[in-house]
Amino acid sequence: MNKLGRRKLKNFLALSISSLCAAAGLAILFIILYDVLKEGLKSFSIHLFISDPAPPNRGLSGGLKGAFLGQGLLTLAATVVGVPLGVLGGTFLAEYGRNSRFCRFLSRLCDMAVSIPSIVIGTFVYAILVLPLGGFNGWAGSTALAIIILPVVIRTTEEMMTMVPWTLREAAFALGAPYHKVITSIVWRASISGIFTGILLAIARIAGETAPLLFTSFNSNYFRLSFNEAVPSLTVSIYQYAASPYEEWISLAWAAALVVTILVLILNIIGRVLIKIRIGG
C-alpha cells in the first residue's frame, strides 16, 4: 500500500505541475489577447481602414488605409511568387529527386532556412535590392517575404506528397500514365488539402512580419500603388506608432495590432479546420 501511495502522490505531483505550466502558458496568451482586444477596441473605427494617417493632437481622426493596402499587396506579391516556386520545388524534392542524396540535403537545408531569423533575410535583401536600387522599395519588401515563405511551402509540399502511398502512384503508372500526369492528376490531388493548409499557415506567418520589411520596403505615409518606392506597412506602422509619444498614435497602433491579430488568427483557424477535415475524412 505504501508503494501504491507513493505512486499516487507522484502521479498527482506530475499532473499538477504540468497542468500549472499549461495554465501559465495559456494565461499569458489570453492576457495578450485580452489586452489587445481592450486597448484595440478604443480606437477601432471605420477610419482605421479608410483614412490616411493624420498628425497627432489636431483632433483629426487618422487611419492606416495605405498601410493595410500596402501590407496586403506585399503579402500578395510574396505569395504569388513564393507559392508556385515552393510547390514546384517541393514537388521536385518529393518526386524526381526522391532518391538523390543531394535533394535530401536540400530538404534539410530548407528546414534550416525556415528558422533563419527574418531580420537576417531583411538585411540580405537590403544588400541586393535596396542599396543597388537606391532606396526602400516594395519589390525588396515582397522579395524578403517571398524568401521567408519559400522554404515553408517547399517542405510542406514535399511532406504532404511523400505521405501519398506509392501504391497509388504505381497504379497510375500501371495504366500507362507518364510521370508528370501521375504527379498532377494523382499525387497533387491526393495531397492538395494538406498543401493548401500549409500555404495558408505560411501566409499567416508572413502577413504579420515586421523585421524583414524594416530594411526593405520600410514604411510610408502615402501610397501611390507603386512598388518602386517605400510601401506603407501595417506592422512597421504599429512599431512606429507604438514607439511614438502621442496617445492617439499609440491607441491607433493597438487598433491595428488587433486587426493583424484577428486576421492571423482567422488564417490559422481555417488552416487547423482544414487539417481536421482532412484527417477526419
Binding site: 501504391t167 504505381e170 497510375a172 495504366l175 500507362g176 492528376s185 494523382i186 490531388r189
Partner: peptide, 21 residues
C-alpha cells in the same frame, strides 16, 4: 516505350487503389 507497354499489359494490385476522384 514503357507507357505503351503498360497500356497493353495492365496490372491490378494486392490492395485496392482507388484514385482520389
Amino acid at each position: 516505350d514503357l507507357i505503351k507497354l503498360r497500356g497493353r499489359i495492365g496490372m491490378v494490385f494486392q490492395k485496392p487503389t482507388p484514385f482520389p476522384m
